[in-house]
Design a binder for these strands. Structure first.
Lengths: 159, 159
DNA sequence: GTAATTTAGTTAGCGCACAAACTTGTTAGG
DNA sequence: CCTAACAAGTTTGTGCGCTAACTAAATTAC
């Protein structure tokens, strides 16, 4: 049962990673935001719009609002007004947030390595390439499914 | 980025499958309960305890309570008292629930096939075996992590 | 230049996961 | 026995995802 196996493996991985982030008082989704802001900083952008953040996280606007609310309350992040667009708000790391990211990062890499420690190098490579292929095809399928909420037996992916 | 790729692929899959179940007015987790009860029936058990259900679903007791509450309200499932243990409650499919399962099942198989339609047979086989290996190792790692909420650089999985 | 549309973000309300604390019933130990 | 420990479920409160509906600002259309 491929689908079921993937479901279980994924659940386990999240469990392990969430446990790691919890040591620093943050959740997985909160980490995702912090790390994206950190990477943006290194690319020269000191802040991002909420919308851009949502696109990178693959989540909808209301979910972004919620996550940002919580890490802002913790003082890890700050909302700033945009000069050019009064609707828009930018988010940037506070000093405290930046320091947290830098404390979390090295151990996180370790943790991810340990997740896949049981696999050989060729296995890891095969998994990566297969998953990438899978994901690109699921992209269309997902957007199809979002619209088609009636048909019973669709046969979209042919190749 | 293996971890990230897996995360994205999984998110897409859930999106597609949830869309399918939504056509029948139920969610993914609700389907999981119904299908487990259906399989149990075919193995001769007309009902399961909430605890057993939780173990098969890999979710905690309060989550089971919630999902059952909602599908019981929809009339798909029924809570029954146990003869042998007054604390325990059993859950079984109603006629309506059983009929729903039988309507959903065939299309679901189709849907799962279409998820993986972009992969060749050897790719599917490789993915399955790698994921199974991965999952078995993550089992211990997850239970370790649940206890170890202090150490920074664990090196558990060696082989 | 005003009206209609689109875009950015939030609010409201729901589903589903969790941990912690609780109730009630069962089992073990003295 | 009767108390202590354990087990089955539920309640409470939180996080995070969603859709639908909203406010306010920007853009486009006319």
């Amino acid at each position: 049962m491929l689908f079921h196996t993937l479901l279980r493996a994924f659940g386990r991985m999240r469990q392990v990673m969430d446990g790691y982030f919890a040591q620093y008082g943050i959740s997985g989704p909160q980490w995702a935001v912090l790390s994206i802001l950190h990477r943006a900083e290194q690319e020269g952008k000191s802040s991002l719009r909420l919308t851009d953040l949502g696109q990178r996280l693959l989540i909808q606007p209301p979910s972004v609002t919620g996550v940002i609310d919580r890490i802002e309350r913790q003082g890890l992040v700050r909302r700033l007004a945009s000069q050019t667009d009064l609707r828009s708000r930018h988010v940037s790391l506070t000093d405290q947030g930046r320091q947290l990211v830098e404390r979390v990062l090295p151990g996180r890499a370790q943790q991810i390595r340990s997740l896949f420690a049981g696999l050989s190098e060729p296995e890891r490579a095969g998994l990566t390439s297969t998953l990438e292929k899978l994901e690109s095809q699921l992209g269309q399928l997902a957007s199809d499914a979002a619209r088609t909420v009636r048909t019973k037996g669709p046969e979209p992916a042919e190749e």
